[in-house]
Amino acid sequence: MMAATLGHAHEFKSGDLEITHPYARPSRPGQLNGSAWFGVNNAGSTGDRIIGVQSEVAKHTEIHDMDMQGGVMRMFKVDGVDVPAGGHVKLGEGNKLHVMLLELEQPLKAGDRFPLTIQFEHAGSVPVEVWVEEPRDGAATHGHSHH
């Protein structure tokens, strides 16, 4: 299993997989749960699958999706997310996939960073660092750097 390494602009690599821009939003007072998002580029010729996530900042960590049912947005746990060969998956941009951080150990504050381990079916465990960032009004998050 290869260790993940920090890239130029908040990216982490493990073999053919590159994890891009892992981030979370600050939690609000009294908020018990949080969310995190990231992208995965797969430069390989074999697909992989995200099968789990773990972080010490929450008692439970799950991958969730959302859909509309009867005019109500419903969130539900998913068992995994496919990352196609030569493809890209983004949790949180253009879809409703996200990592739920359930029962936060402490509030998430802007400027903080925390570890998150992404478990892949084939690549194994890939540790990344999640940056807690304030939302940007209408600004695209792709391609930005933390320098």
Rank of each mutant, 00 (worst) to 15 (best):
H122M: 11
L102A: 14
D137I: 00
A36V: 03
H144D: 06
I51G: 03
H8K: 06
V72W: 07
H8A: 10
M73A: 15
H21D: 05
G124Q: 12
S125V: 00
G71N: 08
P107Y: 06
M66W: 03
H88V: 10
W131D: 00
V53H: 06
G124H: 09
E62Y: 09
V78A: 05
K109A: 07
P22G: 04
E11Y: 03
P135F: 03
D79M: 08
H147F: 07
Q31S: 03
G52C: 10
D137V: 00
L6T: 08
L108D: 01
A110Y: 04
A58L: 04
F38P: 04
E56N: 10
L32F: 06
S55A: 13
T117A: 09
A58N: 04
M100I: 00
L6V: 07
M68W: 08
H10F: 02
Y23L: 12
V83C: 10
M2F: 04
L116V: 15
V40N: 04
W131S: 11
D79H: 13
N41C: 00
P135E: 05
D82S: 11
N95P: 11
G86K: 01
N95M: 14
E134V: 02
A24E: 07
M75F: 12
T61V: 15
E56V: 06
H10M: 03
E134M: 12
I51L: 07
A139H: 09
S45K: 13
K59F: 11
G7C: 07
A4E: 02
L116T: 13
Q119L: 12
M2P: 09
L102D: 13
K59Q: 14
E121Q: 15
H21A: 09
G124Y: 06
S35I: 15
E56K: 04
D65R: 15
H142C: 02
G86I: 05
L6K: 02
T20F: 00
P127M: 11
S27Q: 07
P22E: 00
E129T: 01
E93Q: 07
S27K: 10
H64R: 09
D67A: 09
R28L: 14
G44E: 13
T61K: 05
D16F: 02
L97Q: 02
A4I: 02
